[in-house]
Amino acid sequence: MILSDLLTAKVFDDAGVRLGRVIDGRFALDGRPEAEASLAQARLVGLLVSPHSRGSYLGYERRDLNAPWPIAKLERWRHRGSFLVLWEDLHSIDDDGVHLRAGFTRHDIRLG
C-alpha cells in the first residue's frame, strides 16, 4: 500500500455517514531501528480527517502557529472540525474509502 492510496479517501462512520476525507497520516517513530545507523521504524498511529477540505500541507490547525495571521485564520477555518482517528478504530479500508468501527473516538488533531 502506498500512502497516497489513503490520502483524500472518504471516511465513513459505522452507519455509513460520511465524515470527511483523509488529509494526512500520523506516525510514531517508536519501532526498533532495522540497522544501527537507521531511524526508528515509523508506525501508523492514525489518520487525520477533515470534514471540509481535501488537503493540507501547511498544518496550521495542528500546531501553535498563528503567523502570518490571515493565512493562519484561513487554514484553521478550512480545517475546522478536523480530528484524529486511531488505527485501532479503523474497521475496513476498501474502494469506497475508510470505514470506522462503532464507538470510534475523535481525538484532538494537534501534534503533542
Partner: peptide
C-alpha cells in the same frame, strides 16, 4: 525529531522533502 517515540505527520513532515 530523530528521537524515539516522536510523532510526525507524513504529508506535513515527510512528503515532498
Amino acid at each position: 525529531m530523530t528521537s524515539a517515540g516522536k510523532m510526525f505527520d507524513a504529508v506535513m513532515h515527510l512528503l515532498d522533502r
